[in-house]
């Protein structure tokens, strides 16, 4: 069977010519369905650039990317839109909700672009909001909700169309620690349900929720570690291990 995600020799060069930035430098890796992967690295190491490639928001300078066995390079903008819609649920650091739409309307967006009829769309969106515990906030606008609630709306939106891959770029970056815990709990639950979760973070504690940790420095993968299940290790201990490996 094909891996869910396979990238080979991925390069991303910003400003080719003068002031070149090699944001991604020869990255190759595979991610199978059902994995929970954390990509960690310092600010500016190329994590977001990598996530944009995986999410088909941007195209690599060179290298190949197979998503579900399909070669994504060289697709038209509209074909990429369709892949994003079908295959990927995004969770951004800044939530990226549309301010003048209600929570429910925001969650419905990917379903609208998937041409799902109104009644079914509504049912799916309500179910999705219920899952993140926001059934009672459906008619609220983003400005009427806390950061944690907004991020939960964004998660509901990412889940509503049941895409195989959840891509989260620093999902807790703008949140206090209590909200962060909630969000991470939801991501862990999603993984338990069998979804593929790719989590991007600079925070070892956050990464500790994952089962596999990929470390990036200056656009290169420097380590790719599976976290062994060693009984009831707590998050702190795992985070310390990840930290140690990084040194």
């Amino acid at each position: 069977m094909n891996p869910l995600i396979e990238v080979r020799n991925l390069m991303k060069i910003y400003n080719p010519g003068e002031n070149e930035v090699h944001a991604l430098d020869d990255i190759s890796l595979r991610i199978d369905a059902g994995e929970f992967v954390a990509v960690i690295g310092q600010s500016g190491s190329g994590k977001s650039t990598f996530m944009n490639m995986l999410g088909c928001l941007d195209v690599p300078t060179s290298g190949s990317y197979y998503l579900n066995g399909e070669d994504v390079a060289g697709l038209t903008d509209d074909a990429l839109s369709e892949i994003r819609n079908r295959e990927i649920g995004f969770i951004f650091q800044g939530f990226n909700l549309i301010p003048n739409l209600t929570a429910l309307e925001n969650v419905e967006l990917p379903l609208i672009y998937r041409n799902i009829p109104a009644a079914k769309r509504h049912a799916l969106s309500v179910a999705s909001l219920e899952k993140v515990g926001l059934k009672n906030r459906m008619e609220h606008k983003p400005s009427e909700m806390s950061g944690g609630q907004q991020q939960r709306v964004a998660i509901a939106r990412a889940l509503a169309a049941a895409p195989p891959v959840i891509l989260a770029d620093e999902p807790t970056g703008n949140l206090d620690s209590a909200s962060s815990k909630e969000i991470m709990q939801i991501l862990r639950d999603l993984h338990k349900e069998g979804r593929t979760v790719i989590l991007i973070t600079h925070d070892n504690k956050i990464a500790a929720s994952a089962k596999r940790v990929i470390r990036i420095i200056d656009g290169k993968i420097v380590s790719d570690t599976r976290i062994k299940e060693e009984g009831n290790q707590d998050i702190e201990a795992i985070a310390a291990k990840i930290e140690a490996e990084g040194e």
């Binding site: 839109s81 994003r84 819609n85 990917p110």
Partner: peptide
């Protein structure tokens, strides 16, 4: 612009 970016990320095509 940002709204347009969000919509496109979620799967809106040029025509939409």
């Amino acid at each position: 612009t940002r709204e347009i970016g969000i919509r496109k990320a979620l799967g809106a095509k040029t025509r939409s």
